[in-house]
């Protein structure tokens, strides 16, 4: 399912800001990033590349059915 897990998050919020599609948010209680809207992940890996502690794991599969023009 696209962006999969965040392990070892330090809560710097970089990924939240750098995600073009607003998939990640800060959990107000734990002060750590959580994958809040995975269906909107476009699997571009910007969050992973920006993460200072390399905490983000991404898989190439989409969590919702994929519509293409021809296949």
């Amino acid at each position: 399912m696209s962006i999969q897990s965040i392990n070892g998050c330090i809560g710097c919020e970089t990924c939240i800001k750098m995600c073009p599609t607003d998939v990640i948010r800060l959990d107000p209680k734990t002060k750590k990033a959580v994958i809040k809207y995975p269906a909107d992940c476009q699997i571009c890996h910007l969050c992973r590349m920006y993460c200072p502690v390399d905490a983000i794991t991404i898989s190439p599969e989409k969590s919702i059915p994929v519509i293409v023009s021809w296949g």
Binding site: I10, C12, T14, R48, M49, Y50, C51, P52, V53, D54
Partner: peptide, 13 residues
């Protein structure tokens, strides 16, 4: 690897 610069990452941490 490609991504954030190590020094920037450390400063953020």
């Amino acid at each position: 690897e490609s991504g954030v610069e190590p020094i920037d990452a450390f400063m953020t941490i």
